[in-house]
Design a protein around this nucleic acid. Sequence first.
DNA 1: GTCTGCATGTAAGACGTTACATGATTCT
DNA 2: AGAATCATGTAACGTCTTACATGCAGAC
Lengths: 175, 175
Amino acid sequence: MAQKNILQYIILGLLKQHPKTGYELKQSFENDIGEFWQAKHSQIYPELKKLEQKKLIHHEIEIVGTKMETKKYYITTAGKDYFLKWQFLESTDINPHKDEFTLKLYFIEDKSDPHIKTMVENQLKLHIDKLNHLNERETILFSDKEDINNAYGHYLILKKAISREKDYIDWLGEI
Amino acid sequence: MAQKNILQYIILGLLKQHPKTGYELKQSFENDIGEFWQAKHSQIYPELKKLEQKKLIHHEIEIVGTKMETKKYYITTAGKDYFLKWQFLESTDINPHKDEFTLKLYFIEDKSDPHIKTMVENQLKLHIDKLNHLNERETILFSDKEDINNAYGHYLILKKAISREKDYIDWLGEI
DNA sequence: GTCTGCATGTAAGACGTTACATGATTCT
DNA sequence: AGAATCATGTAACGTCTTACATGCAGAC
């Protein structure tokens, strides 16, 4: 099985909001979603070509100044379908390093979208399970306070993981 | 400039705690530090060979059962020096996806190590700066509550980033 | 006129995941 | 006897970063 290629969905999602040039996509990564996903222009431009070959996007040349050509990319109907299939496919696992769920949520523009409720509930379940699992580990490993000093680093990162999950759950609760 | 190759430092750090086989290293990634860094065995075994070529580690064959050979890896003095140089080199930037600092902290086994204070203070400064920057962005983008509805997804992930930084700062404060 | 930013692209290499491959050990 | 786990390794592929490369536009 191939890797997920999430970049394609992010580009499609961004173009679904507004048509953009490659450079503007690059800026979106720097300003808006850089906290959750990063991509350099050297990754964006080739991906745009691939998406265009698949007819999920197309571009039109625009002139800036007197002669500088820029390519404005537009999502196609097929592209929107492809994107939505990803966005509303329920997640079955979580990865603290690649937070796909938050990206999916980012692309919901309408605050009253009925999808939000089920998506958040599903995600809450996953994170509560994980928090429970981490709490169990803390009980097993560090019930005896003596053990904290013997593996202080381990204790700290377990505490950090627990804190991170709690924070995630709180944030989900506020949506 | 080459990429950082943080995996080598993690392996050295783990072997500094205790000599381990490749398989045991794999398990450390699954159980202990998987929340902060992931590596599969297909990445670990080649890295062990590279580290051994650089004489930062060496191995001894051990027999399990009647004939199964396993390789137990030990860190060398050169390996320890190389590792410590990384561990106590001050960080100048933070990356929400690759949290190098937390790893460095994980490898401090002694709770009263005097390095901890300066490391934490330095890291606190970086995260407070980031939090301030994110708060400014919230003020600029969403002072007008109307704008929240127009870019709800953007609002949510900005809130999430702010919440994450606060959580990180709280955790640093408790060390 | 020079500097910063806009704009696009490719190449090389490092990093990471999945799949392929094999065999021994331990537990039930 | 069979299943799960221990144990080690390579191959193929996909992703990501850094560096190389070029040129126009706008501001001062």
